[in-house]
Design a protein around this nucleic acid. Structure first.
Lengths: 332, 332
DNA sequence: CCGTATCGTGCATACGTATGAACACTATGC
DNA sequence: GCATAGTGTTCATACGTATGCACGATACGG
């Protein structure tokens, strides 16, 4: 069924290795032979077998990308530029979407069907990074990271959260709430830590009763804010672990009839495109999402090419984007 | 570097073929031998090479999925269940996101690195389906389809659009507008056609000046509605080719200070989760998005298994979901 | 006690490409 | 006119798994 290099060789009147070399651009093949081979390949619609090539070269030019949940509006903004950059570098993307890292670990990543892995949603307690390291399968952290050392493309989450804390303090807020990501993620933990640290510096407290944590999802923000609105006295501002949580919070406020920003300030993190929709106009922390994804692709490919180079960590510095969901603290 | 079946064979004191058979569950292998082999494989952390297997079996257990743009909130709701169902059926997903089908065609799909293809965003003028057919690479249409016959999992778009037309007519709207998808997509065309047909039946016109078309994106709805609001007299209702366009339209109305639904009725199509957010409460046409994606996976796998079976077409019937963006036509 | 099933395993090989090494052949220099 | 260098191609083989076929071992019936 499939046309092989041998078929091309027969038609072109050369040997199979010559076909391989001619098509791969080996300089030792004469222009004349190359022309003949290319013509024959064209005529037969020859496409080299990926499996054959992989087996021979021990490289698949494929990268595995792990993401928990594509329907979360955040991840596509990471995956899309990652995909494009990988293609640009001559690699293809294999997407693995699983709730937990562990499920994927052994079989699926280790059958030599991929040359490397991009981890976008690792948790700090995941055994996967260590396992990949042990197996010498190159990988890179994107967005989140964990204790096992590896190349990484991440945001300075603490700094970004600090910007928010100081802005809120400057607006006179003192009853501040937080809806953070999971404590077992670096993004969840660092954003909370940076926020607390900066608040403490300006003398504002963040009691546990005004703190909620959960997955970086719409439902987390919606449900958490609904709860927080019942706390008495009610918080006047809430910092959300990411934009998606913030959108959930905005929705809950709308539902509850609480006016944003007059009665409640809401601030997110990431600045995904939806944050700028008229319906939301979310004040948030912006960072170079696309650049970060592309950097991860480059780091990984570099690691595959030169496995023993020093580890590299690309850290993006975020900035505060002031839209319409923040306002001075209302008088009591 | 990689552990091969030969290494396992050596440790277990059997031949390489026996390892292959034992691990694949060949009934001819004795329980005792199988135990020995499994132990050895375990001890060495053996994982069979995907390339070796593919080369030998001429099957990769991989499916290519073509999607134009993951950052469009619609597609993840198609891709996620598709991914899960494919995994359930023992296949992995390779994602190809490209603006145009053509780019992908030859090399990337035809190097025998995938066993089949799911087309989610084919255009009617794409040459890809015919090419795949010619090359005998199994494929299935999901969501959209085109002239080249193949298995398909789709929605009865005309019916759904008809529901909207009749609802609008029942609410007394006469100055109706439409923001449809691209004319070269089956979903764009069928939804427009079904809408026009049903409107004609109830004697309502849809003049070209109140019609816009564009990609199924937020920006399309936003920009098109901004324009439509300048048409005099202004339309009192607008049907959007999908929910994402409708969200753009809602945002444009908000921006322009036009109250929905009092001054303008907006109706979408698909009922993606965001449509039910409090900020939108979009009236729309619901269909079984997940079921459709799973059906496509099953159809494709069936086609791969039995290439000569009759073509199958799974058509889902949609229903109207009345939320808060529709109202009776305002008095002139 | 031998022939014959039956069962379990090994042997040989196929799958398609890539590549080091060998081998022709031509051109060059003395 | 012969050794030498350089060029273009073929030969042989590796990569890792799966599978048809042959073959040895065991059990069983006659």
């Amino acid at each position: 069924m499939g046309i092989t290099s041998r078929d091309v060789a027969r038609l072109a009147g050369v040997s199979q290795p010559t076909v391989s070399r001619a098509l791969r651009g080996d300089p030792r093949i004469s222009a004349e032979t190359r022309r003949k081979v290319k013509e024959a390949a064209e005529a037969l619609n020859y496409v080299p077998s990926e499996a054959g090539r992989s087996l021979s070269t021990r490289s698949t030019k494929r990268i595995g990308v792990l993401v928990t949940d594509l329907t979360n509006p955040f991840y596509p903004h990471l995956v899309a530029p990652l995909h494009d950059e990988l293609e640009r570098l001559g690699y293809r993307m294999m997407l693995f979407t699983e709730r937990s890292d562990e499920v994927i670990a052994s079989e699926r990543l280790l059958d030599r069907s991929i040359d490397g892995v991009v981890l976008t949603t690792t948790t700090l307690d995941s055994g996967l990074p260590a396992e990949l390291r042990r197996r010498r399968l190159p990988f890179v952290y994107l967005n989140r990271e964990s204790g096992t050392p590896a190349d990484a493309a991440v945001v300075d989450n603490r700094h970004g959260a600090g910007l928010v804390a100081r802005e809120l303090a400057g607006l006179g807020h003192t009853r501040i709430a937080g809806i953070f990501g999971p404590d077992e993620t670096s993004t969840g933990r660092d954003r909370e830590y940076g926020f607390r640290l900066a608040l403490a510096e300006v003398g504002v407290g963040l009691p546990e009763e005004r703190v909620r944590r959960g997955p970086f999802e719409y439902a987390t923000g919606r449900d958490a804010l609904t709860e927080l609105l019942t706390v008495d006295p009610r918080p006047t501002a809430v910092f959300c672990g990411n934009d998606v949580i913030a959108l959930g919070a905005l929705d809950a406020a709308l539902q509850a009839g609480v006016r944003v920003p007059d009665e409640l300030t809401v601030i997110g993190f990431d600045d995904i495109p939806m944050a700028s929709w008229t319906a939301f106009q979310l004040t948030t922390v912006r960072h170079d999402l696309h650049g970060m994804a592309r950097a991860a692709a480059r780091l990984l490919v570099a690691r595959i090419t030169t496995p023993d180079a020093d580890l590299e960590r690309v850290v993006y510095t975020p900035e505060l984007i002031l839209r319409r969901t923040h306002a001075p603290a209302p008088p009591d």
